[in-house]
Amino acid sequence: MLSRIAESLFWLARYIERAEGTARILDVNYHMLLEQSQQSYRLRWEPLIIMAGEEDRFRKLYKEVNAENVFEFLAFRHDNPSSIVQCIAKARENARTIRDRMSREMWEDINGLFHVANSYVPADEIAAGPHRFCDKIKFGAHRFHGVTDSTLPHDEGWDFLRVGWALERVEMTARLVDVQYHNLLDTPSPTGALDNHQWMAVLRSVGAYEAYHRQYPPPIEPEKVAEMLILNPQHPHSIRFSASEVQAGLRAISGSGRGSYANEAERLAGRLLERLSYDRIGEIFDQGLHGYLNDVLRISGSIGEDIARTYFYYAVVA
């Protein structure tokens, strides 16, 4: 497989995942937050911008942090590289450069999603609220996963998609937990009680609300939410599960067996998974959640760089 194609598949998956993640977070939080008092309004919206890592850009474009602005910014702005429409456009652009290497169904699906995403009139959607738009994106992304799974040969190309998806998920979830945890604990709730409502939103934004309740008794406890999202071995959006997908994908590509690694990316993925498998949530809190999640993000970034070095831009030696 050409290095460039592997790279495009990897990024195609990451952008789709990023679009889906943003759509989920936007949808859930929007509706939760509308029920909040005006006073805590700004404080609740800001984390969404921070999660996207786009505070500076947002401040340049808007005076006020409010529901409409955040929605427009995260969903529709073409000058925000992390906006949903931009992620979909980039995913499709990557797909376009490799359309001869994917199934016709995959191309038509992503191309269709692109045209759908661009057919929305931002002003109308802002008035209507994000649900309709975000739902379309979320299901569009799910459908693309499904179409990919059932029409693309599960060869190394598929594995690059898998690694891209999983690596992006590791980062999305790590940022979500980090930002929301601190935000929710640092901000006094107007009701005085722990903000049950908000934690539901966090779980819902990764589709883990029902799973949480099957595993833990009510009420929702922040530490358990963190445990669920970081260490759960089965939930598809937990960091641990995603890290194991990264490792499995990388091993499938290189063909290396258990207990060994063929490159730096595999070594780092293995080490990350090791920690996630044996750490306890109490230990994580003891050493500091923020520091722990920062480590996860740093390692994940290194894995991405090393995948590029190993498979995309290796030095040519005469």
């Binding site: 050409l2 460039r4 995309f312």
Partner: peptide
């Protein structure tokens, strides 16, 4: 394979493509 110029490289008068 559909390639762009940057996917190919010539060495000693032989053309190669850069794969993973």
């Amino acid at each position: 394979e559909l390639v762009e110029g940057r996917d190919l490289i010539v060495d000693g008068g032989v053309v190669y493509m850069k794969t993973i």
